[in-house]
Every structure is written in structure tokens, then in C-alpha cells.
């Protein structure tokens, strides 16, 4: 196990993960906080990162994998440079978020949960960002776009191309 990890991850990354785990006293009860910090740093949680976290927190890889796959916030696929999230909460749904998703899928040629081949965009749906007054809402990175009609999708994507 240990051998595999050292081959795949760079020493710098290993040190960073160990540092994050140590900051939470290597306590497996802090697993979710550790994963938040780790994902913040790496952008995603590939299998080898999970293996190292498990060995540092002294719990099974199955437990770590179980938690990573349980929560929608954690991802094992790297996000694009500009991650696109479409709110599909009820308010946005009622105001036509599904058509906006369809349009983005058509424009980018990727499905929900995928990243474009050039690594530029990734697409995900999330449940309610709480800006229901602006429904339907699309987020690109930290920027929020409100009242997005399917016709506006092209224009928004063009800003990042």
C-alpha cells in the first residue's frame, strides 16, 4: 500500500495531506473536515489521496471512500478551470433550470458531472444556492448569474472562452 502511494503522489502532496491530517490531530472523527481541506487544496479527491488520508487517520480506505461518495460536495473527478453549477432547486426548476442545463450540455458537448476535454469547463447541478429571487441561477466559479434564460447561455460561456 505505502509503496503505491509514494509512486503516484509527489512528496510535496504527501506532506500537504499529512499536514492537514495533523492539524486535526489525525482524528478520524474529523474526517469530513479533513476532506474539505484536502479538496480545497487539490480540487478533487482521487483514490490515492483517499488512501493516504485513511492511513493517516488510522481508518479503513473503505470508510474514507464511503464518505467521499456519500456527500455530493466531494468529487473524485477534477473540476474544470471554470466549474459551472446550475441550481436545480425547486424555485429554479419551476422557472426553467432544466432547459438551461440542456442548453449548456448542447453548447459544451459534455454531460452533467463531466469536464470538457480541454479542462476548461465542468458541469454540475446543485440544489439551491438560496438565491431563489434570481431563479434560474447559474454559477461559474464564484460568480453568480441570475435569471438565466437558455438564450443567455452562449453569451455567458463566451466570457470565459
Amino acid at each position: 500500500m505505502e509503496g503505491n502511494i509514494t509512486i503516484k503522489l509527489q512528496q510535496k502532496s504527501i506532506d500537504k495531506i499529512k499536514e492537514i491530517c495533523a492539524a486535526f490531530d489525525n482524528d478520524s472523527g474529523e474526517l469530513i473536515n479533513v476532506l474539505h481541506k484536502t479538496q480545497e487544496h487539490f480540487g478533487y479527491l482521487p483514490a490515492e489521496v483517499q488512501e493516504l488520508v485513511a492511513s493517516e487517520l488510522n481508518c479503513s480506505v473503505a470508510k474514507v471512500y464511503g464518505v467521499v461518495t456519500f456527500y455530493s460536495f466531494f468529487t473524485m473527478i477534477p473540476k474544470g478551470e471554470f466549474p459551472i453549477s446550475v441550481c436545480t432547486g425547486t424555485a429554479c426548476y419551476v422557472r426553467g433550470a432544466d432547459k438551461v442545463v440542456e442548453e449548456i450540455v448542447k453548447e459544451l458537448g459534455i454531460k452533467v458531472g463531466e469536464t470538457t476535454a480541454d479542462g476548461k469547463f465542468s458541469l454540475s447541478c446543485l440544489r439551491c444556492v438560496g438565491a431563489c429571487g434570481l431563479a434560474p441561477v447559474v454559477m461559474v466559479g464564484d460568480r453568480t448569474y441570475g435569471r438565466v434564460a437558455p438564450e443567455k447561455v452562449k453569451e455567458i460561456l463566451a466570457e470565459y472562452k
Partner: peptide
């Protein structure tokens, strides 16, 4: 503060507590 990670079921109190303990909610 403890952070959720996107699971609706964690609004249920026993699931929320499991999640606070670093487990699947």
C-alpha cells in the same frame, strides 16, 4: 463550526450527528 458536505438526509438529526462524527450521514 462543522461543515456539511451536501447531503439532504443530514437535516435529519440522527444523520446529522453521524455526519458531525465524520461518518456517512
Amino acid at each position: 463550526l462543522r461543515y456539511g458536505a451536501g447531503a439532504f438526509v443530514c437535516g435529519e438529526e440522527t444523520a446529522l450527528i453521524r455526519s458531525m462524527e465524520g461518518k456517512r450521514g
